[in-house]
Design a protein around this nucleic acid. Sequence first.
DNA 1: CGAGACTTTGAGAGCAGTCAAATCCTGTGG
DNA 2: CCACAGGATTTGACTGCTCTCAAAGTCTCG
Lengths: 217, 217
Amino acid sequence: MSQFGAPANWQMLRFRKDESLYFEGDSARTWFVVESGVARTCRFHADGHRQLTGFHYQGDVFGLDEESRLETAEAVTDLACWSFTRQGLANSEGPVWAEPQMILQKALRNAHNCIFLFGRRTAQERIAAFILMLAKRQQARDRIELAMCRSDIADYLGLTIHTVSRTISQMCQEELIFLEGPHHCRILNRAGLEQLAGELGPATTREFEMIRQCSGF
Amino acid sequence: MSQFGAPANWQMLRFRKDESLYFEGDSARTWFVVESGVARTCRFHADGHRQLTGFHYQGDVFGLDEESRLETAEAVTDLACWSFTRQGLANSEGPVWAEPQMILQKALRNAHNCIFLFGRRTAQERIAAFILMLAKRQQARDRIELAMCRSDIADYLGLTIHTVSRTISQMCQEELIFLEGPHHCRILNRAGLEQLAGELGPATTREFEMIRQCSGF
DNA sequence: CGAGACTTTGAGAGCAGTCAAATCCTGTGG
DNA sequence: CCACAGGATTTGACTGCTCTCAAAGTCTCG
């Protein structure tokens, strides 16, 4: 049984790297929670250009569509996850975190953070924010695994793989990070990354708002 | 009483244009639903750069934060909205649409659409998609009100006001749209806009996915 | 060890940002 | 109703960043 104490009516599913869990347009029967590995959700533009809408790590719930899937879900790495229905949750056999409202609210918070992330303009800002997000998600002080390939990062951040690669290289030169192979990275200068990403805590925000409103800038 | 048949324990609030409903970091006591006017939610980056996360029209629910506000909410126009608590909803006095799960799910869908919108690359694509989104939201066949100012549009789409203005002007020259003053616009060539925006229906998506997977592009 | 895919790097073009200024609206007061 | 002031919008010129096209280098897995 999973660390999540999954109820019996949950179903464990396994996928190989790059396999699809479901496609955009499929009927949405179940929700998913990651047991191990990483999943991605994405949508496609008419020109074939792909937009990732999220990476999902252990404990993340995704696939919260109402009737039909708005997104396609795929395995970034070999993936194990539980699928379950909202009805299954309603039986209240699940763990405390598994209440539909909690799940939805967390997903919403993630989506808003994602929108905020995109708001960052330059490639440097976006990638700095992305690396810090990964670090936070992996609860890693400074050693980070980049499980996804460059094109996943690019399609998540709205950049090309070239710009992603170039920007990461540049950050290495500036000794903000250090690459141990293409899929492992060490944060050398967290403060520098945070400055690039431009984090602004809620504490300072209201103050900032006040200034903005008074000065009118 | 509102068209929504608001229960007695809901509270009607009125705001003048550009007034703030709440600030990022405030404790999140209530949810809001727009009765008339338009609201915007936004967050600020450290450099003062603002990111809008949504425009909210009549019937839209926003402010669904858990404990503290992640975003600031402001009135785009003079605004009337109801505020209510989740507990109030639980009393089941509200209209059918007002079930927390439904509301959260709709908000999540909107957020994902927003992320998808950002995925569009060029200013033309983003603005075409934005105009079509407004048209759909206002259920207008071709006459659209741009209630928000250019800087709101810019901060929503991750562009500058200059680029927004230039791109709109260009679309006028190309006779895709026609401006009747800065805040009213007529769609002259919807097909052209849709082509720019690159809508791709779910029907074609799975097919597309299959091709993609086989050819490996 | 070798093939194929992924990643990195280079050069040049194009699009959006910056700085600057003109024009147009909007709302107020006469 | 008209004039005016301030803000919002539009436009222009130029710069710089990211994309495109191209090729070399590296990693992974059979």
